[in-house]
Design a protein around this nucleic acid. Sequence first.
RNA 1: GGCGCGGUACCCAAGCGGCUAAGGGAGAGGUCUGCAAAACCUCGAUUCGUCGGUUCGAGUCCGACCCGCGCCUCCA
Length: 464
Amino acid sequence: MIRFFNTLSGSLEEFRPLKEGEVRLYTCGPTVYDYPHIGNYRAYIFEDLLKRFLLLAGFKVIHVMNITDVDDKTIKGAARQGLSLQEYTSRYIEAFFEDLKTLRIMPADIYPRATEHIPDMVRMVRGLLDKGCAYYKEGSVYFSIQKFPAYGRLAKIDLAELKAGARVDSDEYEKESVHDFALWKKAKEGEPFWETELGAGRPGWHIECSAMSTRYLGPSIDIHCGGIDNIFPHHENEIAQSEAYYGQKFVNYWLHCHHLVVDGEKMSKSKGNFYTLRDLLARGLNPVDLRFFLLSTHYRKMLNFTFDGLEQARASRQRVLDFVYELEHRTLAPGAEPEIQGLAEKVLTDFKESLADDLNISAALAVLFDFIREINSRLSRDLLKQEDAVRVLRTVEEIDRVLAILQERKEEALPPELLEKIELRQWARKEKNFALADAIREELRQQGIMLEDTKEGVRWKRIK
RNA sequence: GGCGCGGUACCCAAGCGGCUAAGGGAGAGGUCUGCAAAACCUCGAUUCGUCGGUUCGAGUCCGACCCGCGCCUCCA
């Protein structure tokens, strides 16, 4: 049984897709006004874990992720640099896709862009106006939350308490009630706009997700994800629009990822306390280590980013890599031990079951590490045969369909002059000229190559 | 003020009423090795923010309190 924590009910629920064996997944994507920071990627990596788990569990997954390429920030950014909106955003879109690849995040099936779905949004806004759930005010269209009694259910916000008080709304447009939100914003001097039946203007932020998710996934979908900060008002508003328009339940399971914090404070653009993936790559970080770091803490738990934490993740992942390396390079006796097959099967089952429990990654990783220790132990006692090693490797690779933290298959080639040095060192060792041998090893270490002497011969790996 | 999250070993982190409180990192000792590295073995919280309560039995449920954080405004 698969269980997820549904923000809507505030509790764990058994997961049942609308259509047997298929999952319709919508995840809130980036607003492409800048390079995303690694906090943003925590959310995308959580969604990647979810998706990969569902695939491993045998579901067909239809995944849509939007790209917000028109909003206040993109408009401002483009204007500042004297670029067209499209020129400005295309850079960041490209960078985003590059980052996804770097972090081994599986691509969505469709990446709809707001600017390419204006008609869908207009149609919805028109419909909401017709139903009396929206109104015009000085050329803009607003959703009237009074017309949607369930408003506040997701965020558990009481409308009465939302009244006037608290904070000042920074929106520059006029509306009837403070918490009504813009569906369509009237064109402003010097800003991009679309000439539509609603008048000249551009869409509000929330409507795009409603329009684009229903466009590709239908009016009701299985899972909708995002960061915890999207709950209110973004997702609350999406529910209001979509359900008011279609008259049926919009999303069955809302899954939200907690924040990445740095020094105990939320990482965010406005606070300036953020790192982009590029920042970290420039520091020599291995992106897959970052992936593992972001992946290995449960998605509903706040994660504190520190370089020490990153180092711990690196070391932890290295243990898995060393294990795989060992299995691939050890010379073993032919045949198979009887218990290995059962053990491998149990590991896979336990791994899946752990994840089935609201993506309990800690438990899942514990299964993997227990397995590694068990096999290593047999390895050191010469209790593993050739066929066992193959089976164990296959199991780890199966697990890695979800984790995606293993080394790339291709063997990296070392420059010939380095290979020559390794040869020379082998000769020196044979001659018992250990001073020379150690000097060469040290020299290679300086160049980021670590040598290990094993019964099977020398092997090298990159450090860092 | 309202809503919500977290406080488990030196660090990260599972556990959601009951076998000896997972797992990873770091550390200590040992085995192997020319030396390293990796791996293996052993050690490491009589204790789970504090104080009460419920229970035969509580990190695990209830209450109060302390500490840290998030949302209520664009934000993953």
